[in-house]
């Protein structure tokens, strides 16, 4: 596995986003929605507290639609256009392709989060922000975004149709986000047991500024499993 190959594919993916209007439209919509939530729906000035925690707790929900929209084309588009076979002729392995595309998507998430720093900047100009909590929140969002991206990539390897990949990714992300709540709606005793699989439960810890090794390992595990499945799914074309 060559890091250079992975890096080259990741750069290619990232460049694709930013050389077309996709990135600008997506990030602009994300910023506008986040701004409306924080300053209008949440009534930031009414709360009179220098905090962006309500926004940090809401972003995982926005990400359920946002990240699958980014990842849906990663492999399915290559499959549809037949360029995946072209990629196979290059001296790169399937694992490198998957990792490259994954890091490309994560790079895009990083740019999105970087742009959203405008909110903590505005808030810190109006009061004393707990920077530790903001830092924790952003680390959590990056981990959660990575897990969503890995799942999005996985669904993208399953189909040639981007829309299908998008819908499957949204369902998968939403399922793992709220699995504890869903289980609890018909079996209360299962809430605690399924909280371990819930993205929300793990994110809640990080959003309040606590970095727990268990939460980090959980998100990394989700990424590893989803990426390993993606590699296997991609390799499946060789079995035909």
């Amino acid at each position: 596995m060559s890091p250079r190959n992975i890096s080259a594919i990741a750069s290619r993916e990232l460049a694709f986003f930013f050389n077309s209007p996709i990135a600008y439209i997506a990030i602009t919509v994300f910023l506008a929605v986040s701004g409306v939530y924080l300053f209008v729906l949440y009534d930031f000035f009414g709360g009179n507290q220098a905090t962006i925690r309500p926004l940090l707790e809401q972003i995982p929900l926005f990400f359920i639609l946002y990240i699958p929209a980014i990842t849906m084309r990663l492999v399915s588009e290559e499959k549809r256009a037949g360029t995946i076979e072209l990629l196979s002729t290059w001296p790169v392995t399937d694992t490198e392709i998957v990792l490259g595309k994954f890091f490309g998507a994560v790079g895009f998430i990083k740019v999105t989060l970087l742009m959203s720093l405008v909110f903590p900047l505005i808030v810190s100009s109006l009061g004393t922000l707990d920077l530790g909590m903001v830092l924790g929140g952003y680390i959590g969002l990056l981990l959660l975004g990575g897990a969503y991206a890995a799942m999005g990539l996985l669904t993208s390897t399953w189909t040639k149709n981007q829309i299908v990949a998008f819908i499957l990714a949204v369902l998968l992300c939403a399922f793992f986000y709220a699995i504890d709540g869903m289980v609890a709606s018909f079996w209360e005793g299962g809430r605690d047991a399924f909280a371990f699989l819930s993205f929300r439960a793990h994110f809640a810890n990080i959003a309040r500024g606590v970095l727990d090794s268990r939460d980090i390992i959980f998100y990394l595990s989700v990424m590893v499993v989803a990426l390993a499945l993606s590699v296997q799914s991609l390799q499946a074309r060789n079995w035909k």
């Binding site: 919509v29 910023l31 701004g35 009179n48 507290q49 405008v118 109006l126 009061g127």
Partner: peptide, 23 residues
């Protein structure tokens, strides 16, 4: 962590800057 006291016009301006200006 209270916010700096701002009049309604300033609040609207900041809200507008955050929602429209940054994007």
């Amino acid at each position: 962590r209270p916010l700096e006291q701002l009049d309604e016009d300033s609040q609207s301006l900041i809200t507008l800057a955050a929602i429209v200006g940054a994007p």
